[in-house]
Computed example of a mutant assay.
Amino acid sequence: MKSITITDVANHANVSKSTVSQYLNKRYEYMSEKTRKKIEETIEELNYQPNILARSLKQKSTFTVGVVVANILHTFSTQVIRAIENYFYDHGFHIIVCNADDNPEKEKNYIEMLRAKQVDGIIIFPTGDNLDLYKRMKRDQFPIVFMDRTIEELNIATVMLDNHLASKLAVDRFVDKGFENIAIITTSIIRDISPRIERIHGYKDALSAHGIRCNPDYIKTVNAEEIPDALSDFFDLEKPPQAILAGNDIILNGVLRYMKKHGIHIPEDIAVIGIDDVPYASFYTPTITTIDQPAIEMANLAAELLLSQINKEENKDTSVHRLKPTLLMRNSC
């Protein structure tokens, strides 16, 4: 059976091949609504399937981008992936999502696989331990954008939260409620992962601004499985904290499980605020005060920056964009 070509579509719709090509590339501004409808109906009637390989060779693009997340279990990561997929779908691209599990070797393998597949660009939540690989991509002028984490000396376009402000909003809220013994717990900072370090710095600076001495016993950086032990250390102190800032959604989940298991009541026994809003925060009992990241706005900005590199626009943006968080006040503090 003869395969249907773009020429067949053009002849059947009584338009030029270039008009059909513009339609396939979603350049609808070059045609009337009537012409667009006619081409759409013709494609459906003839069951035309565009030759993706031929299109890629002709335009020197696979119309595919990669997204390498550090840990897909984070609510923020899934929100960002969804928004990036929506953005690129609207621009005629597909995405390939890879989960590095905060493992530099896994991240390296995924990046090399994506480049072997000739994706047009990659958005990376960098583990931080593949500096030579990042530098090589930059040297090759390969389109790349960092998300959520920065490695400033590389001068690579980055989109992330204003993490200092996120911690400040939480500490300010705790202090407004009358608390001074304020603890923070984050996941491991073993590889100097920037959001975690910045949130701790923001916490320390906010305490200092309120004239509160920073107690090193109130700061914990642990792996997920170590959260219960870290919390037990807090409560075993001579002066246990009155409030806990959970550095991300995984920590918050661990904190809430611990409190429920040990019969510790929020906020009567201890106040809690989490950085990263989570779906259950608004209906958990009590509802959980969180610091919300503008995930969709951040994802769209990262996608715009990557697409501008793919399109080789003249003014290449390599700056670090820090978007502002929002305090969502609920009943846990």
Rank of each mutant, 00 (worst) to 15 (best):
L231W: 02
L245K: 00
I251G: 10
V222Y: 00
L231V: 03
R196V: 08
A271V: 06
A230W: 03
A224T: 09
V272R: 10
L245N: 00
A224H: 07
I250W: 04
P240I: 06
I200F: 07
V272A: 10
G202M: 11
H210K: 14
P241V: 04
D249G: 14
K239S: 12
H262D: 02
E198V: 06
S232P: 00
T221K: 04
F234I: 05
A246Q: 11
M259S: 03
D249H: 09
I200C: 05
A246V: 11
D233E: 13
I197Q: 09
E198Y: 10
A271E: 06
L252A: 15
R196G: 11
R257K: 09
L252I: 05
L256G: 05
D249Q: 07
I227T: 05
P241M: 05
I197S: 07
E226H: 04
P216E: 14
D249N: 14
V272H: 12
I270V: 15
K204E: 15
K220L: 05
I264D: 04
G263Q: 11
F234L: 05
K261V: 02
Y258E: 01
A224W: 03
P267G: 11
K204I: 14
I244Q: 02
P228V: 02
I270W: 04
L252M: 13
P228T: 01
G202C: 07
P216G: 08
I250D: 03
D249C: 10
I250K: 10
D229E: 14
Q242T: 15
G211E: 07
D217Y: 13
A271P: 04
I251K: 09
N253I: 13
Y218T: 01
P228N: 02
Q242L: 09
R257T: 05
G247F: 13
N223Q: 08
H265N: 15
D269W: 08
L245Q: 00
G247S: 13
H262W: 02
P240L: 08
V222C: 02
D229C: 03
L231R: 01
N248W: 13
R257E: 06
C214Y: 02
P228F: 01
L231H: 02
I266R: 08
A243E: 11
H201A: 06
I266T: 09
A224F: 03
P241N: 06
V222S: 01
C214E: 09
G211D: 09
P228L: 01
A224G: 01
S208Q: 04
V255S: 08
K220G: 06
H265R: 15
I273K: 00
I264H: 03
I250N: 09
G247K: 14
F235N: 00
R213D: 12
H201Y: 04
A230N: 05
F234D: 06
S208D: 03
H210W: 07
S194K: 06
P216H: 07
G211N: 12
E225R: 05
I273Y: 00
D229Y: 08
D217M: 12
K239E: 12
E225D: 11
F235V: 00
H265E: 14
T221A: 15
I212K: 11
L207N: 03
R213Y: 03
I219M: 10
I212Y: 09
P228S: 01
N253F: 12
K260W: 02
D205C: 04
E226Y: 01
G247R: 14
I266E: 07
P195M: 07
L256N: 04
F235I: 00
A230D: 04
G211P: 12
G202H: 07
K220E: 15
